[in-house]
């Protein structure tokens, strides 16, 4: 990879995306119902792509809300696997979404490998974006992260005046990079300098102390969790928008002469989540389920992988009907690193 960074002028962007959408299955954010939604776009629709808004979820592209794992005959003699096998690209991931996928990778690509997830990860080219204007609920810097992609992307786009810096992050991104190259010019040192300025400005806006030791959330007593859970109405919105939540369940559906095994997201804060035989529930109280969710992210996951299962995206704060703000909890628990 001799030239990893190029400049795509604003007036050429649409043409580049049009070409991209002709060559592979292309997902990008468009405005729908007043929100940026991830949609597969054909060449007629690429003009609707929004670059300056944040998707509420990208995870569902890799771990769908509901997905068929396989179909099987009633005598269990024939199985038909459902595995994603199209070449695709997705635009619109933020640095937090990339970190979210890295968090999921540790689960699903670990032995035994989850082929359903793995194939999507292998087939889908990730096109990420710098956060030029971080959102109100963003707090990635609190966890020591940057509001722009550092790794984990195949292509990254950094908006600067007059266009975007296109950066190649992996060999997998090469086909997309080549398409962009056709419409791009050289990225001059001045342009890269400007990118740095934009990035620094975004970082300054996220003025939080850098926290460490969040695994000490495990030390909090039951009273604290009871207090924490008072505003929770158990809607599960925080789990639906979380880039690192991955709890799922398996279920069955009857179709024609066969059966279907499906996987679906199952929020860990719902009452039924841990119920075992004869209705025995190891976590009957909401506060213990909410505590488990936080402990999973900051203590259990940390113990296993040495990093938190939280990307600092703040989507859960935005989504919470009860206005629970995870930042308050983390500021109370964590120790200031600098």
């Amino acid at each position: 990879m001799e030239q990893k960074r190029i400049f795509l002028p604003k007036e050429k962007t649409l043409e580049a995306l049009k070409k991209l959408s002709k060559q592979l299955l292309f997902f990008a954010p468009v405005r729908k119902w007043g929100k940026p939604i991830l949609e597969p776009l054909d060449v007629q629709k690429v003009n609707q792509v929004v670059f300056d808004e944040r998707l509420s979820s990208v995870r569902h592209l890799f771990l769908p809300t509901v997905e068929t794992l396989f179909k099987y005959s009633s005598d269990l003699s024939r199985f038909e696997l459902q595995i994603f096998d199209k070449s695709a690209a997705v635009l619109g991931l933020r640095a937090c979404d990339l970190r979210g996928l890295q968090a999921l990778d540790r689960i699903f690509l670990d032995e035994p490998v989850d082929e359903h997830y793995k194939m999507r990860r292998e087939k889908v080219i990730l096109i990420s974006l710098d956060c030029v204007e971080p959102w109100e609920t963003c707090f990635c810097t609190m966890l020591g992260y940057k509001p722009y992609p550092v790794n984990g992307f195949d292509i990254n786009l950094s908006p600067i005046e007059g266009g975007m810096i296109v950066e190649l992050g992996s060999p997998k991104g090469l086909p997309v990079f080549e398409i962009f190259s056709e419409f791009a010019t050289e990225a001059t040192p001045e342009m890269l300098e400007r990118r740095e300025e934009v990035r620094k400005r975004a970082e300054r806006k996220l003025d939080y102390p850098r926290l460490r030791g969040l695994e000490r959330v495990e030390k909090l007593g039951e009273d604290k969790w009871k207090e924490f859970s008072i505003p929770c109405v158990e809607c599960g919105a925080c789990l639906n928008v979380c880039p690192t939540c991955y709890c799922f369940s398996l279920t069955e559906k009857k179709a024609e002469a066969e059966f279907v095994r499906m996987r679906f997201w199952e929020p860990c804060i719902l009452e039924r989540y841990q119920k075992v035989a004869a209705g025995v529930n190891p976590r009957p109280e909401l506060h213990s389920r909410l505590a488990n969710r936080m402990l999973h992210k900051f203590a259990y996951y940390f113990r296993r992988y040495g990093t938190y299962a939280c990307t600092g995206c703040g989507r859960c704060i935005e989504a919470c009907l009860g206005k629970i703000d995870i930042r308050e909890l983390l500021l109370a628990v964590g120790e200031r690193a600098s």
């Binding site: 709890c247 799922f248 398996l250 199952e266 860990c268 989540y273 841990q274 259990y300």
Partner: peptide, 19 residues
């Protein structure tokens, strides 16, 4: 111990007891 082992392979997270 008994928990709701949904996937059986340490992925779905249903059966955790602490870590």
């Amino acid at each position: 111990l008994e928990r709701k082992m949904r996937c059986g392979i340490g992925k779905c997270a249903h059966c955790n007891i602490g870590h």
